[in-house]
Write a protein that binds this DNA or RNA. Structure first.
Length: 553
DNA sequence: AATTGGACTTAGAAAAAGCGGA
DNA sequence: TCCGCTTTTTCTAAGTCCAATT
């Protein structure tokens, strides 16, 4: 469709909200160098506060973080400061840190009225800057606030951690809106870098950040038409894959036997992407980011081949860091042909060599494009996630089951497939214990209620009057109620235990066709609110409107 | 063919808000 | 009403993929 690259006809917005200016510390808050009080210039002080605010964080103990921070901090110092402050270990930020902690505490202790005042102000800001008009619709903006300056916190072992993220000024900002809209004015005394009118893109504001030199954008909320349509399209592409996935699977199995090394590598990589839901794995610039990989960028050191392991033949052991430096660890029995191919690919290679040396994401995606229009590596993740949810829901839901537990288990199967992990909550053990003691208490309560019911029954047998009959009835109900409560608690405990290290929200938000969930809710008479919270219902409004009970992914 | 730039989706951590029980 | 925990929202980093450029 040739007009598909035009994203809107009219776009009007108020521009971004800038980070609040730096407020110098009160005189009594001191910074010490080498044991002596030292008054810092405003610029140096601001950067010092970024470090002070992170003092309790593990980051500030890491050598790379400290080195990067110190280097960038020194750039903000006056010549005198620069000549005095030569060693980060001699810097004492503890007083500053205490001051910020006290401030946080004070904020918590604020009166209701003061808290309300802040809330009102935030609401006003949201009302004024949080919305735009795109083609006759008022739409919510996702991130209308410019990222404040601070210290860069990469994930995992990032070579740039601790670097100074500089303050973004109006002069850095490109505004995108339509010509016939009211163009947002820059703050007094400032100018925009540029105002453009590009309706081939969806963003409203952009700037270039100084850590990686990449572009950041202000875009619309997931509830917006433009994001919703794209989301719907994504799932429709995945459904088209469903129709031809068998053919594609047969094809890559054939290609395992190809005479061409390139084709074999492509076929094995695709098998991994399909079977294990691995990401494509673009190349990354060495030294610019954490060392993480996806399928095409796997190295020899990331897999181990076991001709036999724990009674299974041809096992591949994966161990690598993926997106966000989340570890992927899995032992997978594969077909003999795949195993033999992997042995071949690894021949005469060093651990740090690429496993698929004749392959990259662009070669793979070009091939996928030939197999199906619009097919790319990531579509397999979407497809396999959604089809797994649908299958699991069918398998796990029945009349007797706790519906929510069944849903969460189906969701969990997908999260495990996609390797969506989280750090176990700091309070996990404690909260589990609390829940267990609640269950124990409930059990006792149930025993008591049962005893009372029993004696009421006995009493009624003797007395045979209305009053005692009624008493039996009400005791029966009490027992029932407590049984239900106990059941609920036990389900909750199971659910939480199984969820310890697994994050469900990412798959729910990005991989699972919402129409599957909507249809399931309709089929089992579950209110949609039990599955999707307010934000999620807004994002998936298109599916909630559209899907009927009989929807099939 | 390789590289770079740009636009967009996907991701987990952290902060904030909400909530139920003492 | 306050406190401690859970849930939701915010934040922004880190991917994917396409197209322009070399």
């Amino acid at each position: 469709c040739f007009s598909s690259s035009i994203k809107w006809k009219f776009l009007e917005h108020k521009g971004p909200v800038f980070a609040p200016p730096y407020e110098p510390l009160p005189e009594n808050v001191k910074f010490y160098y080498d044991g002596k009080v030292m008054k810092l210039s405003t610029k140096a002080e601001e950067v010092a506060t970024f470090f002070a605010k992170m003092l309790d964080h593990e980051y500030t103990t890491k050598e790379i973080f400290r080195k990067n921070f110190f280097k960038d901090w020194r750039k903000e110092m006056t010549p005198e400061e620069k000549s005095t402050i030569t060693n980060l270990s001699k810097c004492d930020f503890t007083h500053m840190s205490q001051y910020f902690k006290a401030q946080t505490e004070a904020r918590k202790q604020m009166s209701k009225e003061e808290k309300q005042k802040i809330k009102d102000e935030n609401e006003r800001l949201l009302k004024e800057y949080g919305y735009c008009v795109m083609d006759n619709h008022k739409e919510r903006i996702a991130n209308f606030k410019i990222e404040p300056p601070g210290l860069f916190r990469g994930r995992g072992n990032h070579p740039k951690m601790g670097m100074l993220k500089r303050r973004i000024m109006p002069e850095d900002i490109i505004i995108n809106c339509s010509k016939d809209s009211k163009i947002p004015p820059p703050p007094p005394g400032h100018k925009w870098k540029e105002v453009r009118h590009d309706n081939k893109v969806t963003w409203l504001v952009s700037w270039t950040e100084n850590i990686q030199g990449s572009i950041k954008y202000i875009m619309l909320n997931p509830s917006s038409r433009i994001k919703g349509e794209k989301d719907w399209q994504k799932y429709e592409t995945a459904r088209r894959l469903k129709k031809c996935v068998d053919k594609i699977r047969n094809q890559y199995r054939e290609d395992w036997k190809s005479k061409e090394m390139k084709v074999r590598q492509r076929a094995v990589a695709l098998y991994f992407i399909d079977k294990l839901a691995l990401r494509a794995g673009n190349e990354k610039e060495e030294g610019e980011t954490a060392d993480t990989v996806g399928c095409c960028s796997l190295r020899v050191e990331h897999i181990k081949l076991h001709p036999e392991l724990d009674g299974q033949e041809y096992v591949v052991e994966f161990d690598f860091l993926g997106k966000d430096s989340i570890r992927y660890y899995n032992k997978v029995p594969v077909e003999k042909r795949v195993f033999k191919n992997l042995q071949l690919f690894m021949e005469n290679k060093q651990p740090e060599d690429d496993l698929f040396d004749r392959l990259n994401t662009s070669i793979l995606n070009k091939h996928l494009q030939d197999l199906m229009e619009g097919l790319t590596a990531k579509v397999f993740r979407t497809y396999n996630a959604s089809i797994t949810l649908q299958q699991q829901l069918k398998e796990l839901t029945n009349r007797k089951s706790s519906k929510i537990l069944s849903y969460n288990r189906a969701n969990r199967a997908v999260a495990i497939l996609c390797n969506h992990q989280r750090a176990p909550p700091k309070t996990f053990e404690k909260s589990m214990m609390n829940l267990q003691s609640k269950i124990d208490a409930k059990k006792e309560q149930l025993a008591d209620a049962r005893r009372e019911l029993k004696s009421a029954k006995a009493d009624a047998k003797v007395r045979r009057d209305e009053k005692s009959k009624k008493s039996v009835e009400s005791k029966k109900k009490a027992v029932q109620r407590i049984e239900e409560q106990l059941m609920k608690l036990e389900v909750q405990a199971t659910d939480r235990e199984e969820n310890k290290q697994i994050a469900l929200s990412t798959s729910k938000l990005n991989y699972l066709d919402p129409r599957i969930s909507v249809a399931w809710c309709k089929k089992w008479g579950i209110p949609i609110e039990k599955i999707y919270n307010k934000t999620q219902r807004e994002k998936f409004a298109w599916a909630i409107d559209m899907a009927e009970e009989d929807f099939e992914f």
